[in-house]
């Protein structure tokens, strides 16, 4: 069942992105930036964590959860260090995603040639 929910919820978030592209005439960069900010705002209102409990990877795989993780890291540190923690903690949770993307992306540029 959790696979079905992940599929449907993840698919629906992508549909929102596609509608922003087609109907809203956004560029892909605008769509992704918008969704990240939406993720931050949803987490600000405490909505995103219950959503992850419900949808699993359907909620964590879309880029929206990147915003959620940024906000989460900031608040995690802020609970200990106050306002300074907001700055020091922002990348705490998203480190895996950003580091993996940089490292793998760099090695890919060593190995692969541009296509087409």
């Amino acid at each position: 069942m959790e696979y079905v929910i992940a599929f449907v919820v993840g698919g629906l978030i992508c549909v929102v992105g596609q509608l922003l592209l087609d109907v809203g005439k956004f560029t892909p960069a605008h769509v992704m930036s918008t969704l990240v900010v939406v993720g931050v705002i949803l987490d600000f209102f405490g909505v995103y964590d219950p959503f992850i409990d419900f949808a699993g990877a359907g909620a964590t795989v879309p880029i929206v959860s990147f915003g959620h993780s940024l906000y989460h890291g900031a608040m995690q540190e802020a609970s200990q260090d106050g306002l300074i923690g907001v700055i020091t903690g922002i990348f705490e949770v998203t480190s895996a995603g950003i580091s993996a993307a940089i490292v793998f992306g760099f090695f890919a540029s060593l190995v692969f040639r541009p296509k087409g």
């Binding site: 993840g10 992508c14 769509v31 795989v61």
Partner: peptide, 11 residues
């Protein structure tokens, strides 16, 4: 389209 751009794999 957005189906491959919105997930973290698109990032």
């Amino acid at each position: 389209g957005a189906g491959s751009a919105v997930p973290v794999t698109g990032f």
